[in-house]
Structures are given as structure tokens and as C-alpha cells.
Computed example of a mutant assay.
Amino acid sequence: MVGETSIESRGETFFLNLRFILIATVFASNAIEPLIGTMGGMHALYMWIFSFHMPLFVLVTGYFARKSLNGSAGRKILMQIGLQYVVFQTLYSLLDQTLFQVNGIHHSFFAPYLLLWFLASHAFWRLLMLGMSKWTPVGQMTFALLAGILVGYLQLDGVWFSISRTFVYLPFFVIGYHFSFAAFTRIYTKWIKITAAAASLLLFFILMNWGVKLPLGWLFGSFTYMQLDRQEWYAGLYRLAIYGLQFIAALAFLGWIPFRASRLTDWGRRTLYVFLLHGFIVRLAVVSGIYSYLGNAVGAAVLLTAAVSLTILLAQPVVKQWLHPLVEPSVGWMMTLQRAVLRRSL
């Protein structure tokens, strides 16, 4: 029993470390996006990050979801996700129309605003796992892969209800939910980790030289085959190939993640704050006009340094102390209302 607790504790430490490093890559990728059209190095870095960061982020989310999927804890998290979505969908949309004045955005609660797709999909992943609770892990994974491939054939804009990304990334949520850290540590020995990290670097250089041939839309997961201009009957094979790339990229990137507890572990407990707030910073940077001075190697280095530094800043306890009511609003009143409704219905 002690051994199981130790493995569970080490697994939580590892995934908290991973979660913080991933949110840093999310911030960095969003920060450099305005430069990828003019700087080949930034384009390669952007593609490299997208090859692993969302699949792994979904996997981490699935890993932590297994402790709070069912019962009142599961209902509470679903309510909080819903409330967060309403609050930040409203805030981002209002600022877009007033301060940021960004065009081409669907301002609708049925079309998650940019990064908020993750909240909508997280709720759906939890509901889907509840629906598949009586299936075997193999059955769940088979359904997830088939759904991820088949959703691309829908003749619609994949952004609505975050339907495309929900099913495209569902396999990684299932993997995370059933992830065995004990088995992972037996495989990822010191030399395997070093080899994996080296493979991750190699993938970056491959993408730098040949990645321009791969349309970015395939890595986003938000577009259907119709939107990607691939309407052949075998278009699903392209999605399967992307799954292969993402799986390899994710396994390789895990070689960089430390097993030991550190400041990264503590910061990893507050990545939600970085995730929901960093979009405001990136938007402000874009409208400020600062990117006109960053289109060179020095500017890109400054931008990446700022993104990592701000990730650390937003993960500090004081940010949670100040902004907790906004980022993690209380849903106690919703739980009370639910109980009252249930009592009346009985």
C-alpha cells in the first residue's frame, strides 16, 4: 500500500511538472504566432510545439480527471467548467469588440473563443468518459480513434461546439485516464529519457527543414477535412498519420520532463490561471504594435523569454489569491440549487 502511494505521489509530481512546462509552450506558441509567416525558425518552433503540446495537455487532463470523474466531485467540476466558460467567453468577446477589435472571430457561446475550446472540450471529454464507463479500455480507445478520424468527414465548421477538437483529441484523454505511471517509469529509464529528448530535438530540426510542406491546420485539430481541402474518401488516413506524428512527438518530449519535485511542481498546480489569463496579454501585445519591432532573431528571443517569464508570474500564489473568484468561481450555489431541484422531483 505504501508503494502504491509512493508511485501515485511520484506520478502526480511528474504530471504537475509536465503541466507547467506545457503551459509555458502554450504561452510561447501563442506569443510567436504573429511571427511564423515571416521567420522560418519561429514557424518550425511553432510546428514543433503543436506536434506535442495539445495532445500531452489533454493526456495530463485525462490523468487528473480519473480522481474526480464521478459523483458530486465530478458534477462540481463540470459546473465550474461551465461557469468559467461563460465568464471568459463573455470577457474575451467583449474585449475583442471594444479594445482589441479583432476580425474573423465567431462571437457566440456555441463557438468557443480561441483558447476556450479547451474548456468546452474538457466538459465533453468527461461526459464521454462517463458514457463509456462500462466499456473496456480497449473499447474506449477504439471508439476514440474512430470518432477522431470520422469527425473530419462532417460537412461543417469544426469550431462549433468545439466538436472537431473534442473528438480529435479524445484518444489522448482516454490514454491519460488509463495511464500507468508505474509502467512508464519502468520503460523511461535514464538512457531512454535521454534518447527520447534527443529524438524530440531531431524532430524539431526535421520540421525546420521539411515541415513547411505540412499544413498547420492538420496540427490544430479544429478543422474538418472539407476545411482542409481534403474531401477524398481516404482523407481519414491523413488524420491517422497525424496521430502517429503526435504520438511519437509526445513520447519524445516526455524525455525532457523531470521526475523530482521542484518549483515546477508547485507552479504546475496553478496552470489554469496561466491558461485563462495569458490570452489577454497576447492580445494586448498584438494591438500595441510591438510586433513590428520583433521581426528578427533578437526580438524573437526577447519574446520567448517574456512568454516564459510571464508564465512563471501568472503561476504565482499571489495571482491565485487576487483572481481566484474570477478564474475559479464558486459553484456552491449551483450545487445547492441542484439538490433543491432533485428533492422537488422526488
Score class of each variant (00 low, 15 high):
191 W>T: 15
260 R>M: 01
108 S>Y: 10
279 G>W: 06
211 G>F: 06
131 G>Y: 04
174 V>E: 02
296 N>E: 05
122 H>K: 02
140 Q>F: 02
97 Q>S: 09
300 A>Q: 02
152 G>S: 06
88 F>E: 00
166 T>H: 04
180 S>P: 08
58 V>P: 13
230 R>G: 02
209 N>K: 08
276 L>K: 05
275 F>V: 09
315 A>F: 09
205 F>V: 11
5 T>M: 08
125 W>G: 12
5 T>R: 12
223 F>R: 07
49 I>A: 12
67 K>V: 04
208 M>V: 00
91 L>G: 04
183 A>N: 14
293 Y>R: 12
253 F>Q: 07
104 G>N: 11
22 L>K: 05
63 Y>M: 08
268 G>Q: 09
178 H>A: 08
188 Y>S: 10
50 F>Y: 15
64 F>V: 13
134 K>I: 09
129 M>G: 10
212 V>P: 00
318 V>H: 01
58 V>M: 08
278 H>D: 04
221 G>N: 05
163 I>K: 01
45 L>I: 15
235 A>S: 15
54 M>G: 04
158 G>H: 02
310 L>E: 04
295 G>T: 15
134 K>N: 11
150 L>F: 12
106 H>Q: 09
198 A>G: 11
193 K>I: 09
181 F>T: 10
323 L>E: 00
101 Q>N: 13
236 G>T: 14
337 L>Y: 10
226 M>Y: 13
277 L>I: 12
72 S>Y: 02
139 G>E: 13
128 L>G: 08
296 N>K: 04
265 T>I: 13
152 G>P: 06
71 G>W: 06
230 R>N: 14
249 A>D: 03
138 V>A: 13
317 P>I: 11
277 L>T: 05
13 T>A: 12
46 Y>V: 11
48 W>N: 03
85 Y>H: 01
250 A>T: 13
173 F>D: 03
224 T>K: 01
268 G>E: 03
256 W>A: 11
115 L>V: 15
32 I>R: 03
224 T>Y: 06
284 L>Q: 01
105 I>V: 15
132 M>C: 13
328 E>V: 14
286 V>R: 11
142 T>W: 08
147 A>R: 01
168 V>M: 01
273 Y>L: 07
308 V>Q: 03
197 A>V: 13
86 V>W: 07
56 L>C: 09
333 W>P: 01
164 S>P: 00
63 Y>N: 09
85 Y>L: 04
98 T>D: 00
5 T>I: 13
61 T>N: 11
312 I>Q: 06
102 V>G: 00
56 L>D: 04
144 A>I: 05
232 E>W: 03
342 L>I: 15
197 A>W: 08
249 A>S: 13
100 F>T: 06
95 L>T: 13
197 A>R: 03
81 I>E: 00
181 F>W: 07
276 L>H: 07
169 Y>P: 07
285 A>Q: 03
320 K>C: 05
124 F>M: 12
315 A>Q: 06
314 L>K: 06
130 L>P: 06
98 T>S: 11
232 E>F: 03
342 L>D: 11
303 L>V: 14
298 V>Y: 07
221 G>H: 01
267 W>L: 14
287 V>T: 12
44 A>Q: 03
302 V>Y: 10
224 T>H: 02
27 F>N: 07
136 T>D: 00
200 S>Q: 01
300 A>S: 12
223 F>T: 07
180 S>G: 07
30 N>I: 06
72 S>R: 12
255 G>R: 00
160 W>S: 02
161 F>H: 10
246 Q>V: 09
81 I>P: 00
